[in-house]
């Protein structure tokens, strides 16, 4: 898989792009940018200059600074969601797949229930019940997405646990815990990595979309979705205020999708085999 990726131009293009976005997000505080939350009405809606490379918004805040700080929120929340989902779903899916029977049925029927909730509606429910905020968006996306991962992990674990090499490991006296650590997780990890990379773009769109609706990140915290919402009234006079965050969302979602596609093409397994 690694060797095939090495010669894949799209993989490198996406990886470099994401590297730049990631570096921007990580090192935003070290870049000597103006405070993204500092309001200066005297300097509102300025064109690009050496002081404000991408100009300022309707409250005189630096757009570049808001974009970079915004990426911390967007990327950070997506990684937290993924970490939660992958940890929880690997656990639930492995238990279901490994033990089978009643436990399996119980976990899978729970998954079915969760799969019936549309993300946006459930997010609105959480926000109505718990109040607006990024945490509730994270919870909502976690609740609506974990079941997909749990099902896929279960499928992979079932296909692996009856592989002869796992049976041979049992005959060789390897304990169940060690079998999972030594034989099952290493086979599962690359597949989950590809799957989650393909899903990152999707989740970023959810976070940005809910923030655009005013349900997620609250002002004045910079976030791409809420920046677009802020700039709505200037769509005819200052379209760049919408274009910059829109472009940021577009480019990063596309980069993640291309990266995921390249990784899927390079890997030697097919999801059709495990999704049963």
């Amino acid at each position: 898989m690694m060797r095939r990726l090495f010669y894949n131009k799209i993989f490198w293009a996406a990886a470099i792009l994401l590297g730049l976005i990631g570096a921007g997000a990580l090192f935003a505080p070290q870049m000597g940018l103006p405070d993204p939350q500092e309001v200066n009405l005297a300097a509102k809606l300025l064109p690009p200059s050496s002081e404000h490379l991408l100009g300022t918004d309707h409250l005189g805040r630096d757009v570049l600074s808001r974009l970079l700080y915004g990426s911390r929120v967007s990327l950070g929340s997506v990684f937290i969601i993924l970490l939660l989902i992958v940890t929880f779903s690997t656990l639930a899916g492995s238990v279901a797949g490994f033990f089978g029977g009643v436990i399996d049925s119980a976990i899978m029927r729970t998954c079915d229930v969760f799969l019936t909730f549309p993300t946006i509606i459930l997010a609105m429910f959480f926000i109505a019940a718990l109040g607006t905020g990024l945490t509730n968006v994270v919870i909502a996306i976690f609740f609506t997405h974990w079941a997909w991962y749990a099902r896929i992990v279960r499928g992979i674990v079932i296909s692996l646990k009856n592989r002869e090499y796992v049976l041979a490991a049992r005959v060789a006296g390897t304990s169940r815990g060690r079998i999972v650590a030594r034989h099952i997780l290493p086979a599962l990890a690359p597949q989950l990595l590809v799957l989650s990379t393909l899903d990152i773009g999707h989740m970023m769109l959810h976070v940005a979309g809910l923030s655009f609706l005013g349900l997620g990140v609250q002002p004045p915290t910079p976030e791409w979705g809420s920046m677009i919402n802020d700039a709505r009234q200037y769509i005819w006079t200052q379209p760049q205020l919408l274009i910059y965050p829109g472009l940021a969302i577009f480019v990063s979602v596309m980069a993640f999708n291309l990266l995921g596609d390249a990784m899927r093409d390079a890997s030697d397994f097919s999801f059709a085999e495990v999704e049963s």
């Binding site: 002869e164 090499y165 049976l167 005959v171 060789a172 030594r182 034989h183």
Partner: peptide, 25 residues
């Protein structure tokens, strides 16, 4: 009580070396 299976390709973990495979028991 040990075993040798039919499906040779599936009987070994593709991520391990032959030495590691024989070493496991």
């Amino acid at each position: 009580v040990q075993v040798v299976f039919q499906n040779v390709q599936n009987s070994v973990n593709p991520r391990m070396t032959a030495g590691e495979i024989v070493a496991e028991p």
